[in-house]
Amino acid sequence: MLDLGPHASFILAAYGVTAIAVAVLVVTTLADDRTQRRKLADLERRGIRRRSATPPKAAKTVTPKTTPSMTAPPGGETIETDPAEATAKKPASKRKPAAKTATKTAAKRKTAAKAKAPRTRKPRS
């Protein structure tokens, strides 16, 4: 056994306090890391994921019909929700009919072409 002399209790107390403080720090950091990973995985399982995150295989085959909603989180990264799920959850009554959208797009195109066309002046008589 190591002989620490008459001040052994002070030495052991110092090392003991340090060990406890470091252990608490390590355990809380690890627990926090695991909690956040679990929460993130849970959200991603429900189809809410960041834009840069790899989408699940099923979602890859679906062509998005709506613009994905994007928000800029405080972390500075752009995120988006799963477009397939967003469309699926929207009630049928709230969705725009495909034909109406197509007409609108054609009208928009016509307006844009008109704006781009060079203006010609009428010759003065």
Binding site: D32, L40, R49, R50, P73, P74, E77, I79, T81
Partner: peptide, 14 residues
Amino acid sequence: AEILRRRVRALQQT
């Protein structure tokens, strides 16, 4: 852990 917390927070807002 903090980066993940901020991501979780942003996703929860979404």
